[in-house]
Design a protein around this nucleic acid. Structure first.
Lengths: 336, 336
DNA sequence: GTGTTCTGTGCAAACGATTGTATCTACTAA
DNA sequence: TTAGTAGATACAATCGTTTGCACAGAACAC
């Protein structure tokens, strides 16, 4: 039943040439004659030859596999990004190994360890909500595995990043609300360890100042992205003496959690209190009462860019020193 | 910067023993003395030794990698299933390579080819909407790669399957509607090539007969799962002289497409026409007007079972002949 | 006829681990 | 004392492929 492994040895035997000739022929080596090449290809096809990746890896030290670690696939943003990555990478003959951290540092570390032992050629990562230190990623670098971060990129470190223009998007969101006459605006941000949270805050801040809106310290909340924490924080906002008229949320999930909590408190979202968020998930199109507006971050494109950058680094000659790149992708505020 | 690969050879040198001793020590071979073992482990740890998977594969012909091909990760059902698969499989030291077919036969075939050339130890698949023939999967079997299908399993073939109890779920859904006094019930099914579509139809059919509900040929529609086709089919139903009072949909996405189309036609879903569907996606919890009820299919559990079955087959001794298994997981109708 | 330059091919040593068999030492039992 | 045995380790072949080097023959110029 089981096909015995076809090797170049068998091809060589069948043709009465040596295995080195076969190997070179299959690689289109210029020193091999045209006729020989044709014969080799014909026999290879006939025998259904599939090169053994292990042997190639052993010689070339390349797995043609890249590892991706991200919070969770169930978030459409990430599954779209994966699709972008896959499209770019599979075109170049690479495979993708995916691991979900589910926002747990421990899972993230496990994934990285597994990437090291399976010898991936590179890693694309979007860090977990718990991640504040990067020694585990440094470990990858020690093994010479290049890394590109996307969306949830670490701050403070010189690394390759692909991310949305969050500062501007946040600014734009606030301006959008201000144009509607809203003045008291809160922010339900994510964990402070993420650079993209700083950026949201910065855009928020800038906008408040430049547009002359009131800056209230208690309007600024950060959550660990869980439903529970989000509910708690929105409750705090609602309980204030002067609650905000609008909330800028870290992403659509946070907005949905918060909006549900509002409903439970008898407050009608987007009427009594307005919501604007990030991600612009396709599912929001099916909501009767989606966030007023959401920042489209072009996840697919981000995945593509990250993959392209990674491949570029992998393909760079070993002695070339590459400066870490910081690619910023423009976002777009979509009004629902 | 780049750590040179640490090999057992270096460990051997450091200790002044032979590489075979090191190899056996690392595998806890009984023939190696306790003291030697301890020393080997200590040095391995010190040098940060990571075994080279290629070399092991070359000898043992095992990649410790399994391939998963499914329609799309963005569907929460599938990302949940992946999570179940990952949890089971990573515990046994396996990796997962994921490929999305996006319901295209060509992409599915490409994924399988790539699985063959990367020598995965096994494959878990949920077939694309376009798939009607299975020769590409047979190809995998030719190479001795075991396959387990889940949810979207092929029909007519003797293969390993893990699937929901769809016949019963469909029956139950119809009974649920009948109990509410509904009599004219249509079905918006998926492509006929999928066994799970047959089963939906069978359950639907059985229920209509046993409950004495009218059987109308034009009430039975099948779609290719796309938004366009779904809109077209629901339009046909709405345009009938005696349109159905309720529609049983292939899954929540189909239901959402259909419901949106209804709205466009000025018909209020779940009031003018009722919807019941499959999948019970978490996102429906955020809808103001979700399908009236949805069949929970326990995707995570399905993924787990599929992974367990696959590992069991992989671990079975080569000469053992295994009967294909058909594992059925109970579903549950969740009323919203 | 001798050297030079191509072209086309083969030999054999890697890559890093596993594993059957051989070897060496020390100890026990007769 | 000596054969026998068990324990600990080493040797070397092997997995499938790549690749530097060697080599053979043909074509060409002088």
């Amino acid at each position: 039943m089981q096909k015995s492994q076809v090797t170049i040895k068998q091809i060589a035997q069948e043709l009465g040439v040596s295995i080195s000739t076969v190997s070179r022929a299959l690689q289109n080596h210029p020193r091999i004659g045209l006729r020989t090449k044709e014969q080799v290809f014909a026999v290879a096809k006939k025998l259904n030859y599939v090169p053994n990746p292990a042997a190639i890896l052993l010689k070339k030290n390349r797995t043609s596999t890249i590892g991706v670690v991200l919070p969770q696939l169930a978030e459409e943003f990430f599954s779209q990004a994966i699709t972008g990555i896959e499209d770019v990478i599979s075109e170049k003959g690479y495979n993708v190994v995916i691991s979900q951290s589910r926002d747990s540092l421990e899972r993230e570390n496990r994934a990285i360890k597994s990437f090291i032992s399976s010898r991936v050629d590179g890693v694309i990562a979007s860090i977990s909500a718990e991640t504040t230190q990067y020694y585990q990623f440094r470990e990858l670098e020690n093994y010479g595995v290049p890394i590109v971060f996307f969306d949830r990129v670490p701050k403070d470190v010189r690394v390759n990043k692909v991310r949305g223009n969050i500062v501007e998007a946040a600014y734009e969101s606030i301006a959008f609300l201000e144009a509607r006459g809203v003045r008291r605006i809160a922010i339900l941000n994510g964990p402070a360890s993420l650079e993209i949270c700083d950026e949201r805050l910065m855009g928020y801040w800038n906008a408040l100042k430049q547009l002359g809106l009131p800056v209230v310290q208690q309007y600024i909340k950060s959550t660990d992205l869980s439903r529970e924490d989000t509910s708690k924080k929105i409750d705090e906002l609602l309980a204030m003496e002067e609650p905000p008229e609008a909330v800028l949320c870290f992403n659509d999930y946070v907005a949905l959690y918060a909006m549900q909590q509002c409903k439970q408190r008898g407050i009608v979202p987007n009427k009594d209190i307005l919501f604007v968020s990030f991600a612009n998930l396709p599912i929001t199109a099916y909501l009767d009462n989606p966030p007023l507006a959401s920042v489209e971050q072009f996840a697919y494109q981000m995945g593509e860019k990250a993959a392209q950058l990674l491949l570029q680094i992998i393909d760079a000659p070993d002695d070339s020193v590459l400066e870490p790149q910081d690619i910023v992708i423009d976002t777009k505020l979509v009004v629902h």
